[in-house]
């Protein structure tokens, strides 16, 4: 719906525009500057064109980090989305129970990332951690500092613990919006529980699930604090995801040029994947609309 145009409205956007300029566009431009130049400090820059980009693109280390990152996102999506939906389906629909459940579910979401990381780091420690010590006691060889599988398991369980609630809350909101008549019709048509889920609940939740998948994908793809606190990227580089690798490159090795080129590409990759996700999923919708 187009409305009568009123140009004055632009002035109202101006403060936000300035704010965004200072907080996002200017820093970003600095990064762009670093990506195309080499510097030896004291503000002396040499134009190197696409050299840093080539370096990053051909770096095996970055390739590995990217693969690790994709694997991580895929695993947590594959666990959190079905699990979140399943939990949402079992929640009470109304009454005091519903409110209590929602508050409890929301708790992990309220904890800061680094705290979550610390909790799990301590939790998994072999000497004093509840989990680590217990597993050692019963004779399981568990050590996130040495075994990469163990490290991955802890990170994944941590992410699932932290974020499944978000998926649950979104799915729950979607379920609440389904009119009672649909369930009644399902009962009258003698639909099985699975059929009710497949043909009534899932289609009606599609919109919120799309948002849940997008949010969880983006978040997991740029995850930094938690694995950094728990494993520091190790053992070796087993849990060095893209952002951890980036920080190592920029702060650890002070390779500012490649790091800048890396972050720009990182940014575009996320943008691209989100766009693809979004278009594919909304197009699935559009196919059914009348011409």
């Amino acid at each position: 719906m187009d409305k009568p145009v009123n140009q004055r409205a632009w002035f109202l956007v101006l403060p936000v525009f300035l704010l965004v300029a200072f907080s996002a566009i200017l820093p970003l431009m600095t990064v762009v500057n670093y990506a195309f130049n080499d510097t030896f400090g004291s503000n002396a820059f040499f134009w190197v064109g696409l050299e840093w980009f080539e370096e990053v693109l051909t770096s095996e280390r970055v390739h590995e980090a990217l693969l690790r990152q994709l694997l991580f996102s895929a695993i947590i999506l594959a666990i959190e989305i079905p699990l979140g939906i399943a939990v949402a389906l079992t929640l009470p629909k109304r009454g005091i129970g519903a409110s209590v459940c929602l508050v409890i579910l929301a708790l992990p979401l309220l904890i800061p990332w680094n705290v979550v990381g610390t909790i799990w780091q301590v939790f998994a420690r072999v000497d004093i951690g509840l989990l680590g010590a217990f597993l050692s006691q019963i004779g399981v060889d568990f050590n996130i500092g040495q075994d990469s599988i163990d490290a991955w398991v802890v990170l994944i369980v941590m992410d699932v613990w932290h974020w499944t609630s978000l998926v649950t809350l979104l799915a729950y909101a979607g379920l609440q919006a389904i009119p009672e008549a649909y369930y009644q019709a399902g009962r009258i048509d003698q639909a099985s529980r699975w059929a009710v889920f497949r043909y009534i609940e899932l289609p009606k939740m599609k919109g919120v699930l799309l948002i849940a998948i997008l949010l969880r994908f983006m978040d997991s793809f740029v995850i930094y604090t938690e694995p950094f606190v728990v494993t520091g990227g190790g053992p070796g580089s087993a849990t060095t995801f893209l952002s951890i690798d980036l920080v190592k490159m920029a702060i650890g090795q002070f390779d500012l040029g490649p790091a800048a080129a890396f972050s720009i590409m990182y940014f575009f990759v996320i943008l691209l994947i989100c766009w693809v996700f979004y278009t594919v999923m909304t197009n699935l919708d559009r196919q059914d609309l009348p011409e």
Binding site: P179, A181, Q184, I188, Y199, I200, L202, P203, K204, D288
Partner: peptide, 15 residues
Amino acid sequence: NIAQVFQFPVVYDTM
């Protein structure tokens, strides 16, 4: 074993 038609259309969208 009854059938019911509701006030607002109830159809299975994806079918």
